[in-house]
Amino acid sequence: MKINQLSVFLENKPGQLSEPCRALAKAGINILTLSLADTQQFGIMRLIIRDWAKAKAVLEEAGSVVKITEVVAIEVEDHPGGLADILEAIEHGGFNIEYMYAFTFGREDKAVLVFRFDDPDPVIKMLQDNGISVINGVDLYEQGQ
């Protein structure tokens, strides 16, 4: 139920983003989605990649510092209120979201939300109890093809 996300540390200066991306491209690795968080000084690039273990090796080889963290992916209908319902459920459960981002595959009427929780397992259970569909890795990667 959990997805392995790669995080890469970046300095906040021109050209820093392209280097790890080029390394992945050279190795023939496709990025399912990418999100950036930054401060004035530095940034963190978060990547969802099917072959995350290989991607980690490639990025580290290229000199990046990489961390694997487990995130939770949830599928929502791409319409107003889709996100609000889920956030409400998380809030009711008393869970704290460290950060989140969203993406769509473009061919379906659905969006994927990626959540980072301190401890994902009880959240997954709560979401499932509430009938919210948590995507497993295989499904996510299949859709992304």
């Binding site: 968080a37 963190i44 978060r46 963290t69």
Partner: peptide, 17 residues
């Protein structure tokens, strides 16, 4: 930044700094 101290959370990295 080394792998030992790197976190995917901005807040923790700011704390470290």
């Amino acid at each position: 930044v080394s792998a030992d101290v790197f976190s995917d959370e901005i807040r923790l990295m700011e704390d470290l700094r």
